[in-house]
Design a protein around this nucleic acid. Structure first.
Lengths: 148, 148
DNA sequence: GGCAGATGGTCAAGTAGGTTGACTATATAG
DNA sequence: CTATATAGTCAACCTACTTGACCATCTGCC
């Protein structure tokens, strides 16, 4: 594959990612969750299963723990999460989603599904699954980083 | 497709996009072009064919023209582009890439090709082309926006 | 048990990249 | 020729992040 083709593929991927992010965020806001930025969604994804500490969140998001702490302040202030004492470590606090936080997460999933459904209309269900399969195999495991 | 599946697909796409952006940027820096951020690359893409005005660049990047003007200041100061009088409009200036700007663009293409080659090792050339095809069909035309 | 160093978290100050608002110069419509 | 729209810049501010300093608590080792 030529360099210019690789660049065209990259551009298509990044444009699609940007559009997806924006539309998920719009969908979440449209469902009544205000003061939410895309970064919050990625935090929610890490908090969802069992909660996490600020430091774990910072690693996941690829930012300093100070920045993560500040982000937690925001989502706590808006009622999406709460800080609880950590069961094993008195220094740490376990950040867990509130019911409102879970509702917001479900709203994000619904918004994502809406966008993906649009892709299905263009590509067909079969190709969307093929796309998912390809991306799963090349997606990195590390921290989520902003696209630019 | 279930909501949770759509979210998993979205997460894979965004993680891949973030990784791609980061690695292209690292590749460009490794090739000796310093003081470059990912946003500059997207500006270069718009400037490459025939140049563009600050306002056109602002629309392409999805930012205010003041922000675009500031970004142009940076790439001009670093020798990647220059401001010329616009051939048809004395108010406007045409921003065009310098030879160094073109070299940087080629470096970005080479870096992108390197990443895509890694995908080829995992998926096979055939699947990478299928991925490209899918993404081309769902990628939006509008301004490029940051993923978050 | 007790001490030294590592780790979790926060506070404070600084920075970078964006925004809004105001302004000048030039273009365009009537 | 005048009135309005557009290209670009300057200045002030805002927000999300960084670095540096600090305290509380955990862990390894004597």
């Amino acid at each position: 594959m030529q360099n210019s083709e690789a660049m065209a593929l990259s551009a298509a991927l990044l444009a699609t990612a940007g559009e997806l992010t924006q539309r998920i965020n719009e969908g979440v806001v449209a469902r009544g969750f205000e003061g939410i930025r895309p970064a919050h969604g990625f935090a929610f994804a890490r908090l969802a299963p069992d909660g996490a500490t600020v430091t774990e969140l910072a690693v996941h998001l690829g930012v300093t723990k100070q920045a993560a702490s500040q982000l937690v302040d925001e989502i706590v202030r808006r009622g999406y999460a709460e800080r609880r004492p950590h069961p094993r470590d008195a220094r740490a606090r376990l950040i867990v989603l509130t019911e409102r936080g879970w509702a917001c997460t479900r709203a994000a999933e619904a918004a994502a599904a809406e966008v993906v459904r649009g892709w299905g209309d263009v590509l067909g269900e079969r190709e969307v699954r093929a796309l998912w399969d390809c991306l799963s195999r090349i997606a990195p495991y590390g921290p989520l980083r902003p696209s630019w």
